Each structure stands twice: as C-alpha cells, then as structure tokens.
Deep mutational scan, measured.
Amino acid sequence: RKEMTAACTPRRRIINLTSVLSLQEEINEQGHEVLREMLHNHSFVGCVNPQWALAQHQTKLYLLNTTKLSEELFYQILIYDFANFGVLRLSEPAPLFDLAMLALDSPESGWTEEDGPKEGLAEYIVEFLKKKAEMLADYFSLEIDEEGNLIGLPLLIDNYVPPLEGLPIFILRLATEVNWDEEKECFESLSKECAMFYSIRKQYISEESTLSGQQSEVPGSIPNSWKWTVEHIVYKALRSHILPPKHFTEDGNILQLANLPDLYKVFERC
C-alpha cells in the first residue's frame, strides 16, 4: 500500500510523520478485503446518474454509490500519497476573496446577518489561508500566491479535474471546517474536505460537464463527458487505489441488486 500512486510524480518523498502513518493504519484496520476484491475485478455496466452506477462482479449485479466511493478513493490517495502530488495549474489565478464571496452568497454556506458582513468574512478567509499557504503547498500541492490567488490544485489521478463549480464552497470550508490546531486532526479533516471537493457530486455535474483533463479519443470531437470520466478514470482507479471500509457493506453505498443465475431462471419461465 505504501507504493500506491494514482498520479505520476517525478520522485517520491518518504513521509514518516506519526500522524500520517496513524491515518494510514486506520484505513488498513477499517478495510474490507472482500469489497476490495469485488472492486478490483468488477465489470463496469454503466452510470445511472452522477451519484449511482451499476457494476457486475462474477454472477452478481451491484449498485454502487459513485459519490461515496470516489470520496473515499480521493481521501485514501491523499493519505497514502501525502506530500507526493503533482499540481493542476489553473488556467488563470482565482482570487480567494472572490471565491469566498461566491460561497457566502450560496445558501449552502449557511451565512446569516449575525455572522457579520460577507466582505469582512471573505477578507478573513483570504488572510487565514495565506498564512497556511506554505503547508498547503508542501503537503497538498494546493498553491496560493502572495496576492491571495489560488493558482494550483493537487493532481490526485492523472487526467482528472475536480468539478470546479464546487471550488468556492471548498475554499470556505478549508477556513471553517478544518481542525487547524492538532496535526493528525488537521491532516485528516483537510484531506476529507479535499476528497469531498474532488468527489463526483450530482449538484455540480450536468450532462455537459467534463471532468477530464483530456479530449476524447476521436479527433475533432467534444470533450469527454462526465460519464466517460466516471467509467474510464474514476472506476479504473477504484480497481487498484481503494481499500473500501467495512461500513460500506452496511450503509447502502454498495448494494447487491441481483444474482444473475437467479434472473436467468426467471427469464426461462417467461
């Protein structure tokens, strides 16, 4: 597991931080080997919608929660590849102030007048994250320049770009939802926020969305749709870069829909 690298990086740093090793061990302890084997050997059937997909393993048909699986995938990559990410360069710098204002204007932020003026909160978020810029760049390849612009994001899987519609809320939550006081809790909560931002979430995906850094293989055609990215990038990574937690067998994120021999018997009677 320590050699797990989802995106190509030129050289690998050895990380011996106790906090990170502890988080890696927790993933191992909570892992479910049968689910790992199923995901490793599954045959992708198709997307139901951005949140759900169908896959077959041996004779069984499964309904998989793409949102939760991708979130767990990105969390584990962030923990196992800690401080070893490439950088996704933004085509132009994104001012943190503008991103924070967009987030505060969104109902998702939960902002009320009692929280104070949005401009003041946005300025605080910019200054707060600028103070964390060195650590964010060093460990997470999340790059913020001296003017308070976001200029780079971590490359977690080759050819995958997170849904940038979720970027404003991500920046807001970096400042408000991460435990910045304790090292282990900081790395864990920061990785979880980043994983949620990178995950496939239906509120940020339309039929026209593209999450891939590449064009489709047909010359002159439109960019790959999110469905292509889910199948050929995300579920491909799920084959080798995730140890599913045991609770996925109990919380409805992986559901067995049918045993195909039983279905064949039904059709034979028709």
Rank of each mutant, 00 (worst) to 15 (best):
G110M: 02
L88D: 02
R173F: 01
E113A: 05
E29G: 05
I79D: 15
L156R: 00
L54C: 04
N224P: 06
A122R: 00
G213A: 07
F170V: 00
L156M: 10
H57P: 00
E25T: 10
G116L: 15
T5L: 12
E268N: 05
C8I: 12
L150P: 01
H241T: 12
Y198G: 00
A7K: 08
C186Q: 02
K130I: 14
I144E: 01
Q203R: 04
A175F: 12
E37R: 13
H57M: 04
L61A: 12
L243N: 06
L174V: 02
L260V: 03
Y139L: 06
P162L: 00
I222S: 09
K131D: 13
L17T: 05
Y75S: 12
L211N: 03
C270D: 14
S141H: 12
L99P: 00
Y62S: 04
E114T: 06
S225T: 10
L243F: 10
E177C: 14
F140N: 01
L121T: 01
C194T: 06
F85H: 12
L61P: 02
D105R: 03
T176Q: 01
E134A: 03
S19W: 14
D115R: 01
D262Q: 13
L69C: 08
K60P: 11
E72K: 15
Q58L: 12
G213K: 06
T112L: 15
V20Q: 13
Y124L: 13
P154Q: 00
S91K: 04
R173E: 01
W228V: 09
I205P: 09
E147A: 05
M38S: 10
F248A: 12
M4W: 13
A53E: 00
A103Q: 01
G252W: 01
W52S: 09
N28R: 07
S216G: 07
A7W: 15
T229P: 10
T210P: 07
R269I: 14
L96F: 00
I144S: 01
I171K: 00
P219Y: 12
E231C: 14
E113I: 04
P244A: 13
A122V: 14
M135E: 03
I14E: 04
N16H: 11
G86M: 10
R36S: 15
E147F: 12
T229S: 09
L142E: 01
D138P: 05
P117E: 10
P245T: 13
Q58P: 07
M4S: 11
G166N: 11
V230Y: 08
L99A: 04
L167G: 00
A237Y: 07
R12C: 10
K131P: 15
P244H: 07
N65V: 00
S216I: 08
H247Y: 09
S141E: 14
G116D: 03
P163D: 03
G152F: 01
R269A: 11
L69E: 00
R13V: 14
L23I: 11
R11A: 12
E231S: 14
V34D: 07
N65F: 00
E3N: 09
S189T: 09
M135G: 02
V87I: 08
T210G: 07
L90M: 04
L150A: 01
K246W: 15
P244G: 14
W52C: 05
I15C: 13
D115E: 02
L21A: 05
V178S: 01
F140K: 01
P117H: 14
F170L: 12
G213D: 09
N179T: 04
I171Y: 00
L61Y: 00
S189F: 06
V126I: 07
I171N: 00
